[in-house]
Amino acid sequence: MHPAFSIIVFTTLSGLGYGLAAVLGLGILDPAAMATKLAHLAALVLIGVGLLSSTLHLGNPQRAWRALSQWRSSWLSREGVMALLTFLPLLWSAWFAVVEGRHAPVAGLLGAAGAAVTIYCTGMIYASLKSVQTWHTPLTPLCFILFALSGGLTLASLAGAAGGGDALWPALGAIAATIAAWIAKTAWRRRMLSLRPLSTPETATGLGSIGKVRLFERPHMNENYLTREMGFVIARKHAAKLARISFLAGGALPVLLLLVAAALSAVPVTAAVVIACAALLHYAGMFVERWLFFAEARHAVMNYYEG
């Protein structure tokens, strides 16, 4: 599948934002600290930029509001509805933190629940597609949720340390979530690598009863929408290497840095710098992970194109 830049930015940034918003909603940071107030704003900005980015790949973004109508059947519609609904408790929660300097437990919990459901809907957009076997597993939304949580806890521990407070617990939480996320992702990747294709050129053409089916001529000499959108293969050459890079940047190194930060939690400024490095690496790792998520996925239509 074609890894559209806008979709990668959308899923990674909004994932990070919702993760942070959910952690803030649980009220584990000092609501009076300036860093916590900034974290609330940062979560809203990340979510907002992510959602705006998602409209960039639309052919007719001026009609995007229509996407709120089909929540009965469409995960994409559900995601849009949940994203908008979740803004209410998140804004409420951010208002209390930024303006009044206190935690709003009800709004916080509602926001955390809304964030989790929104991310789940994002994951289900992909997991619901039977035509892309790699994505068609409950592990897909699980990975989305755990990566959002791991990124959110990393940013929350940054805010905790930067606010001069105790970053030990959020940092330990971030370590646990990052490990959990990579366990889920490893299971996801193992499943992908061991998949037997559900559809083959033989079933796609119905000619398997005669023999092995091989493409002789494409319909047209040049690329078309289908081969550009569904037949992306550039990253597959370096897929294994990129997967290791995403694990290092998005998992192993942030966990090491967070351990260092946890050990340094008595010196919040140093801890904050270390956690900031962990957060940047984490985002880079997520970006590569999401790129691969698309680039490695094979669409059933490629059975007609030998892709």
Partner: peptide, 22 residues
């Protein structure tokens, strides 16, 4: 008139029967 051009339906179709008009 209602299509926003998100392309998800083309992803959902295993046959490649849908193409976005650019």
């Amino acid at each position: 008139d209602k299509c926003i051009g998100c392309g998800l339906c083309a992803w959902a179709c295993p046959y490649g029967a849908r193409e976005m008009d650019l």
